[in-house]
Simulated assay, not measured.
Amino acid sequence: MRKEWIEELIQRLLEGQKANQKDGVYAWMQIETAYQSNKIEGNTLTRKQVASIFTRGEIIPDDNSIRLVDIEETTGHFVMFDEMLKTLNNSVSNNLIKKYHLCFRNSSSQDVRKGSYAGEYHRQKEREESEWEKVTQRMDDLINTYNERDTHSLESLARFHAAYEAIMPFQGGNSRIGRILLIKECLRSKQVPFIIHAANKDTYKDALNKAQNEQLEELMDFFKKEQINFEREIDKILSKEE
């Protein structure tokens, strides 16, 4: 039953993407993932503003100033989410992860000012070449180990996520990439995906820190709670569409 639910979700997401729907499951996931994941990292846009950018291509002003980087992160996240759906059945690879980063950061004025490169692992100065090689090797080792299996349990996803977050291969945007990978791999493994809520940031970060020290239980429990939240929200949307 759960597998059928997930397959229906995937179908609705792909149909929504193809039709460029501005409501329903696809639009909700686009808006919610962009809002929550960016907010965890300090983005100041409200959910209403994120929704307006997605549905109308414009931003709703309020009494606070609006930062250019917040808009760039939001639109970049929309593009990355679409790329995730297009590559849903692809195995995790360095090229795939770099493509997600390119989608997310390609238009970032921050990257231009800092001299960093969208879609490339962290390398700021030539004297850091050896450190860049270490990052690449660590990512190779992580991905090769992960890809020894075709589908993954929640424990496997938690282990991969913790290890990826410890490497932090890019100069910026690492955690957004990590969280979109969680959604992708849940769907590919026919598990209920989840969106990590900014309101749960402290719990998430604490559990992630423990997972990086081989204590995976709290991160797995946290993921399970967010899965329950996700399933509840999706069921509400599906019931309205019926």
Rank of each mutant, 00 (worst) to 15 (best):
E41C: 06
G42N: 03
N43F: 06
T44W: 01
T44G: 00
R47G: 00
R47N: 02
Q49Y: 03
Q49F: 04
S52Q: 08
T55C: 14
R56T: 12
G57H: 09
E58A: 15
E58D: 13
I59R: 07
P61Q: 11
D62G: 04
D62M: 04
L68W: 12
L68M: 15
V69T: 12
V69L: 11
V69K: 14
I71W: 08
E72G: 08
E72V: 09
E73N: 03
T74N: 06
T74F: 06
T74Q: 03
T75H: 05
T75I: 15
G76A: 07
G76K: 03
H77N: 11
F78M: 05
F78A: 01
F78G: 01
V79I: 13
F81T: 06
D82G: 10
D82Y: 02
M84T: 11
T87F: 01
L88Q: 06
N89C: 00
N89L: 04
N90D: 14
S91M: 09
S91P: 03
S91E: 12
V92M: 12
V92Q: 06
N94K: 14
N94M: 11
N95F: 10
N95Q: 14
L96N: 04
L96P: 00
K98V: 00
K99A: 09
H101C: 06
L102M: 09
R105F: 04
R105C: 11
R105S: 11
N106W: 09
N106G: 07
S107D: 14
S108M: 11
S109A: 11
S109G: 08
D111L: 15
D111A: 15
D111G: 06
V112C: 01
R113A: 09
R113L: 13
Y117L: 13
A118T: 07
G119F: 01
E120R: 12
Y121R: 02
Y121C: 02
Y121G: 03
Q124R: 15
Q124D: 14
K125H: 13
R127C: 04
E128Y: 14
S130F: 05
S130H: 03
S130L: 08
W132V: 01
E133F: 10
E133I: 13
